[in-house]
C-alpha cells in the first residue's frame, strides 16, 4: 500500500513536470557536407548488380556455354554481393547515425531531441542526386529480380505444349535392345524387364529409352482407349521417371502372386513406383503423373514396333531438364 502511494505520487509529480515544455530552438541543426565519392560508389555498385543480374539471365538462356552452372552461380552470387556492398556503403557513409541518449521516461534534453528529429527528417537531403540513386536502385532491382525469376521460364512452354510430345517414336518404328538388335515379341518373357530404344535414332533424346515388361494379359487393367496397346501382354513405358528424370531401373515381380506385392516399376532415385498393369499409374512415391505408355504392335516378322507416340509428355516434371542436351 505504501509503495503504491509512493508510485502514484511519483507518477503525478512527473506528469506535472512534463507539462511546461520549453519552445523548440530556432537554430537549425548542422548536417555533415555531402559526400560525392560515396554517392558515386553506391550508384556504381547498384548498376553493376543490375548488370550481373542480367548476366545471370543471359547464362540461363544460353545452354551452349561450358560450365553453365558455375557461371550461373557466379553471376547471381556477385549480383547479390554487390547489392549488399551498396547497402553497406550507403549506411556507413551517407546515412546519419546520430543517436539520442535519454533516461526513460524523462526527456532531459528536449532541445537536442528536436535537433536529432530534424536531422533525421532532413537526412535524405544530404544525398544530392536522389533521382539517379533511385534509378540505380531500380536497375539493381530489375536485374536481380529478373535473375531470380528467370528459372520460371523452364517450368514449361507458356503457349504451345507440342514440344513436350516430341519423341523419336512414331508408328512403325522398330524397338531395338542396347546392342541394336531388334526385339522379337516371343523373346519377351514374364518376370523380367527389358530396356529398348528406337531403331536408327539418337538414344540421347529424353523420349528414346523404353522399359519393356510382359504380364499375363488377364492381369491387365488398362484404360479402355489402350486395350490394343499391349499385344500379348507386352507393355512399353518411357524409362524416364516423371518425377525427376532418373532411369526407371527397378522392376519387382512376385514369385508367388497370392502373397507377394504385385508387379511394379520402381525408380531408384526417390522410389516412385508405377503399376504397369494399370497403364503406368503412380502407386507410391513423389511422381506426380503416370509413366507415359507407348502403344506397341507386332509386325509380320514377329518384331515389336511402335504403334504411335506416347500417351503423355515424356520426361520429368522438373525445371531445367528440357533445356539440357545430353553430352556424347
Amino acid at each position: 500500500m505504501k509503495r503504491f502511494l509512493v508510485a502514484l505520487f511519483g507518477f503525478l509529480t512527473l506528469r506535472r513536470r512534463r507539462k511546461p515544455k520549453p519552445p523548440p530552438p530556432e537554430e537549425p541543426p548542422v548536417l555533415p557536407p555531402p559526400n560525392r565519392g560515396a554517392e558515386n560508389a553506391v550508384i556504381v555498385l547498384l548498376l553493376l548488380a543490375g548488370l550481373c543480374g542480367a548476366a545471370f539471365v543471359f547464362f540461363y538462356a544460353t545452354s551452349s556455354i561450358p560450365n553453365q552452372t558455375q557461371w550461373l552461380g557466379l553471376s547471381l552470387g556477385v549480383a547479390l554481393g554487390l547489392v549488399a556492398a551498396a547497402l553497406i556503403v550507403l549506411s556507413r557513409t551517407l546515412l546519419n547515425e546520430e543517436e539520442s541518449e535519454e533516461d526513460y521516461p524523462d526527456q532531459e534534453h528536449p532541445a537536442e531531441q528536436e535537433e536529432v528529429g530534424q536531422l533525421v527528417e532532413r537526412a535524405g537531403s544530404r544525398f544530392t542526386r536522389k533521382g539517379l540513386l533511385k534509378a540505380a536502385g531500380g536497375a539493381a532491382a530489375v536485374g536481380v529480380g529478373a535473375a531470380l525469376m528467370a528459372p520460371a521460364a523452364s517450368l514449361g512452354p507458356v503457349t504451345g505444349t507440342n514440344s513436350l510430345y516430341d519423341t523419336p517414336w512414331k508408328r512403325g518404328r522398330r524397338l531395338v535392345d542396347v546392342r541394336g538388335r531388334p526385339l522379337a515379341a516371343n523373346e519377351i518373357e514374364t518376370g523380367t524387364f527389358y530396356t529398348a530404344f528406337p531403331e536408327h535414332t539418337s538414344r540421347d533424346e529424353i523420349g528414346s529409352p523404353l522399359v519393356l515388361v510382359r504380364l499375363d494379359p488377364r492381369e491387365l487393367r488398362l484404360p479402355a482407349a489402350r486395350r490394343a496397346w499391349a499385344p500379348g501382354g507386352i507393355l512399353a513405358f518411357s524409362k524416364i521417371c516423371t518425377h525427376a528424370g532418373c532411369a526407371v531401373a527397378l522392376y519387382r515381380k512376385p514369385t508367388f502372386a497370392p502373397i507377394d506385392p504385385r508387379p511394379a516399376l520402381v525408380c531408384p532415385c526417390h522410389y516412385s513406383t508405377f503399376d504397369p498393369a494399370r497403364g503406368g499409374d503412380v502407386i507410391f512415391g513423389p511422381a506426380g503423373r503416370p509413366l507415359p505408355q507407348l502403344p506397341l504392335e507386332v509386325d509380320a516378322q514377329g518384331n515389336l514396333r511402335a504403334a504411335g507416340n506416347f500417351s503423355g509428355p515424356v520426361g520429368p516434371s522438373w525445371w531445367g531438364v528440357r533445356l539440357w542436351k545430353a553430352q556424347p
Binding site: E189, T192, Y251, R252, K253, T255, D260
Partner: peptide, 13 residues
C-alpha cells in the same frame, strides 16, 4: 531364377 521379387534374367539379357 529371380527369387522373391527379383526379376529373372535370361540368356538374351
Amino acid at each position: 531364377t529371380g527369387p522373391y521379387l527379383m526379376p529373372k534374367f535370361s540368356q538374351r539379357q
